[in-house]
Structures are given as C-alpha cells and as structure tokens.
Design a binder for these strands. Structure first.
Lengths: 235, 235
DNA sequence: TCAAATTCGAAATACCATTTCGAATTTAAG
DNA sequence: CTTAAATTCGAAATGGTATTTCGAATTTGA
C-alpha cells in the first residue's frame, strides 16, 4: 500500500523521496526552529519510517545542512538579479542592502532559520565545509568586494578613505548580523526597542550607507556648496 | 565527609552551593558552549549530585539564564564607567562602540556565550522575562537613547536628520548583531573574510560613526557653548 | 536531644536520535 | 515469467541525556 506512485527507476524514486523529506523538514524547521523539531515529526510528516529516512540522511544536522545549502544558493541567485544593472558601486551596495531588507520583511522565518543554523553549527563547522558553501554562491567573494570598493572610490560614489580589503567585509558582517538578530528576536524587538523590525533595519542600512557614501554625494563638501539633505524618510 | 566548611547558617551554605554550581557551569558553558555541556558535567565539576543540583536550579536553561543575567548586569556596570564623562553625544556613542570592540577582543568567549544564549532562547522567551533583564540594566533605555540622539543633534555632533526614536536602537542592534556574529564565527571569519575579527569589527564601527556624525563636525568643540543650531527637521 | 532541612546514592523514568533486522515489496535484468 | 538486488516497512533495541524519586545519612537550629 505504500507505492502509489509508479517510479520508473530507482533513481527517480529516490529523488522524490529525498525531496519529500527535505520539504517536510523545511516546513517544520521554519515553523518551529531546528531545535524543537524531532526526527519523529519529520518522518511522520514525510510519510516514511525512521529506518527509511536514515537511508537518505545520516542525521538531523545533515538535513539542515542540505536545506541551508539550497537556501543560500537560491538567495544568491536572487541577489545577483537585484544588483545587476546598478550603475556604480554605491548603487550596487544600495541594491544589496535593500535586498537584505526585503528578505527580512518577506521571509523573516527563513532568515531566522539561517540565524539558528549559524548559531548551532558555527562552533564546530569544518572550515572546508563552510568554504564549499561559500564558493557555491560566489567563487570569488574576496575579489568581488575588493573591486567593488575600489571602483566606488574611483567613480566618486564612495568615500576615498575606505579600505578595499576590509570595508565591504565589515559591512557585510554587520548587515547579516543585524538582520539575523532582528529575525531571531522577532516580535520581541518591538518590545525591546519599541519599533517595528522593518523600520529598525532600514534605519541601520541608511546609517551604513551614509557612512560609506562620499561626502559630496549626499551633502555638502565645504561650507557652502549646494546642500542636498539626505532625504530618505517617509517612504 | 562532605562538609569541610563550617556553614554558620543554612542560608549561607545554600549561597555557597549555588555559587559553586554557577561558577562551574559558567566555565563549562564558556569553554564548550551551552549545547554540548551536560548536566552530568556540571554536577561533577561542582562536586554535587544531580539530585542536589536540582534543588537549586530546575534545569540547565535555568542556570544559563541566571548566568546571563549576572553577565549582563556586570557588563552594564562597565559600560556606564566607560561612557561617563563623555563631553557630548557623539563621544558617548564612540565610547560605547569602543567598549563593544574591547569586549569582543578581550572576552570573545563571553560574547559567544551571549550569542548562543540569544539564539537558543530568543524564540521562546517570555517577553516579561526579557524586560526584567533589560530593566535590571537600565530602567529607562528608551529615554536614554532618544535623549542621546536629540542632544547630539542639538550640540551639532550628530547629523540633523537622525530620528531620535529610531536611530540609536538601530545602531545598537547592528552593533550587537555584528559583534555576536563575529564572536560566534570566531576564527572562521578570518577564513571567510580574510581579515582578523578585531579589525573587521572596528571598521564596522568606523563606518557607523561616519554615518552618524554631522558632516561639518569632523572636529567638534568639546564645550557645550550653544551655537545657533540650524534646525532642519520638519514635523 | 529532636525535628526540619539538606545531601547523598542509586536507581527509575522519560524522551529522543539512531540502529538493527527480518519480512514484504518493488525494480531491473535475463 | 523468474529471480536477485534494492528498497521499504515495522517493530523493537540501543544509547545518551535530562530530570525525578526515595530512603538513608548528615547537618543545622532550637
């Protein structure tokens, strides 16, 4: 009574089973967090037996890892779409930050999942495994960031005193850290800070951009050139 | 043969036991992370029996919570020392950020402990419990932050277009998020970003400060002489 | 000296991840 | 169609861990 679907081949069948497990686990993880989901729930929800499930994944962590890998890959694709066509370095960075804000608003649960994953595994990650993940997303992240800052300084959209080897990494870490913290704390932020998550995060991004942007680009250079107040409010 | 110390009273004895447990747990948590420490290790390390331990704390989480509470209180004290005497709002914020950087450099394990705690419990925290913690540290955090931004705008050390109700909370969240992420990832950051933790974090802070600082005010008058403030804020 | 509080020791309970194994079912291949 | 290999099932076993229980021993306060 178990096989209603007609698997043409073992391989196709295995693929389907695997996906069934991953989908079930993803829903559960995102709803409840990795910690509180039991293997029994995953097997139940995917309609398999424990013994069968362990023929596909060797542990709960194994499943979580696979899901993260897929999630990051999908995210990377969307990021690339968002930043392509940006006219200069500042625009690329702005587009990226806006992407992060939209992710937080629209996929808060997924961001929380990422945060929990990091917290759970960061300590014991084999570095190579981390690098595998990273390189899946961008084969040359160092180069990309470094070049970005350099070109921004060259085209005058970024401050001249930024450090190409350093700044973009620092900003990335801050943005990711801030985003995940907000996603993890969720509604509690509004209690702690008295402001909605989305507004807080966008204000963070605004400040960071103000710190990156070349002074001429947003406000005055010396005492009395034209002054354009940075208006970003009330959007 | 267990009582070598002469407890004058039950109460004093209980205090000592309690502290013994907390100290043992703290070392273990900070060394290995909350997750991987077992109750058996804590009881062993504190020289008690499980049954005795459960007369002091109802669970591992209970111990962790108590430790966090102490840790936050101690941190708050040090923060206050660091920021007192700062001549204006920008200086207060700068001092605070430097404090955060020093914490990361000097107590990375403790920061990682905080990060793990947040990740573990953020989802289920009863909000009241969170607020109890917060208020232990600062009875009026909203007011303080709001006033800080206001006074910085007034004395010309901060940009005029900051939002007193929002900006400082946003910066706090970003700084804490960035700090804890770096502490959690630890040495792996250097693999991922190719830069030491400390440099990355300080660069983050620099960018944030650049974003907060009033454009004219690269050098500020430390005196609070009331210069005619050019108020540009509507509403 | 006695009653209450505390601790000990050891075993018991409960939950969960993961494994084992033999029987049943499905697939691939001759 | 037949059969061997792969897969799944079902159910029970294993092992680790948190937490509890309980009676005996010890310590404290009065």
């Amino acid at each position: 009574m178990q096989k209603k679907a007609k698997a043409r081949t073992y391989h196709a069948h295995r693929e389907r089973q695997r996906r069934r497990i991953l989908d079930a686990a993803q829903s559960l993880f995102i709803e409840q967090g990795i910690e509180r989901v039991t293997m029994a729930e995953i097997t139940l929800s995917s309609g398999l037996q424990p013994s069968t499930m362990y023929q596909y994944f060797s542990s709960k962590d194994d499943i979580a890892w696979e899901l993260i890998s897929e999630l990051l890959a999908a995210t990377a694709t969307r990021v690339k779409q968002r930043i392509e066509g940006a006219p200069n370095a500042l625009a690329v960075i702005t587009a990226f930050l806006e992407f992060m804000a939209d992710e937080l608003s629209g996929n808060q649960a997924a961001v929380r999942f990422l945060a929990e994953f990091d917290a759970r595994y960061a300590h014991d990650w084999p570095v190579e495994r981390l690098l595998t993940l990273e390189s899946q997303i961008d084969p040359q992240p160092f180069r990309f960031f470094t070049d970005l800052i350099r070109s921004g300084i060259a085209d005058g959209s970024l401050r001249a005193d930024l450090d190409p080897e350093l700044t973009m990494h620092a900003v990335m870490n801050a943005v990711i850290g801030a985003q995940r913290r907000l996603a993890s704390l969720g509604r509690k932020v509004e209690v702690e800070y008295g402001q909605p998550v989305d507004r807080l995060f966008r204000e963070t991004l605004r400040i960071l951009l103000l710190g990156l942007r070349a002074p001429e680009a947003s406000t005055i250079k010396s005492s009395n050139t034209r002054k354009r107040t940075a208006r970003k409010r009330s959007s």
